[in-house]
């Protein structure tokens, strides 16, 4: 019998380790096994038989990715469990691990597509839409953590602005900023996962970003502030943004967003 090539061995072992049935079951059944089978090339010697040896890697693969996803969605997991939906969360995690293989060197980025998967591709529906929102918020927190903040230059540039250049300037928001809209009170739920994930009578809005200290902030926004900030975040210059807010209100927002690091820079258009 010819020994497998390195390529054959690696492809076979990947099939075994990542098999949703579990490595041991998959290898023993041999169904859909890549050929040549490499089972007999795994040493079968005490203290473990070859199936136990392969299974150690298979179990570790699923546990590592499952634990990782739990670690980045701790509040979502808590709320799912509190609502007796822990098995739904576990199914979503298991489906994701099988359906969306990691291709990144950095395991920290593996969970970023989890929310989209839950919304669009999973066969396990979530009836309470507030839970999608909380997953999205935790995903935004992770994203903020993984991105370098935009350097703060706004304070040095503000004195260079006159009234006309202010109108055409583009205010650059921090690269870590995410703006979320939900039918649930996400901020309350995020701060206290024992909070009931019920829908309030109106939508809620919030911002996730890293402030000037580097810490991640999750703060609620009023609807008009959210719309104004969304427009700024999209790169619109001031003159192109319509708002029902009064001038003093927008000035107050600017001051607040500069001080807390949401607005980091200004591109002055001449």
């Amino acid at each position: 019998m010819t020994a497998p090539t390195l390529q054959e061995l690696q492809q076979w072992l990947k099939w075994a380790i990542t098999n949703p049935s579990g490595a041991r079951v998959a290898v023993q059944a041999g169904e859909y096994e890549p050929k040549p089978s490499c089972t007999s090339w795994v040493v079968d010697a005490p203290p473990l038989d070859r199936f136990e040896r392969i299974d150690i890697y298979g179990s570790a693969f699923f546990m590592r990715l499952r634990d990782y996803l739990h670690s980045i969605f701790p509040k979502s997991q808590e709320v799912f469990e509190r609502l007796s939906l822990g098995d739904v969360f576990d199914k979503l995690v298991a489906e994701y691990i099988v359906s969306v293989p990691s291709s990144t060197p950095n395991i920290d980025t593996f969970g970023l597509a989890f929310v989209d998967f839950c919304r669009q591709d999973s066969s396990t529906p979530i009836e309470n839409v507030a839970l999608y929102g909380l997953l999205e918020l935790e995903s935004s927190v992770l994203r903020a953590h993984l991105i370098a903040c935009t350097p703060q230059r706004v304070l040095e540039k503000i004195p260079l602005l006159d009234a006309s250049s202010l109108e055409t300037a583009r205010f650059i928001t921090d690269s870590t900023l995410s703006l979320l809209e939900s039918t649930a009170d996400l901020v309350a739920l995020w701060r206290d996962p024992t909070h009931a994930p019920t829908s309030p009578s109106h939508k809620t809005w919030c911002a996730v970003w890293r402030d000037l200290s580097g810490g991640t902030r999750v703060e609620p926004l009023k609807e008009n502030a959210f719309q104004f900030l969304t427009a700024l975040h999209s790169g619109l210059p001031l003159h192109a943004i319509t708002t029902k807010a009064e001038g003093t209100q927008t000035q107050q927002w600017f001051q607040e967003w500069v001080e807390n690091g949401i607005i980091r820079d200004i591109a002055i258009i001449h």
């Binding site: 990947k14 380790i17 990542t18 890697y57 570790a60 590592r64 293989p101 990691s102 291709s103 060197p105």
Partner: peptide
């Protein structure tokens, strides 16, 4: 292998 990282 095959573009996937098994993180092990």
């Amino acid at each position: 292998v095959g573009g996937e990282n098994l993180h092990d």
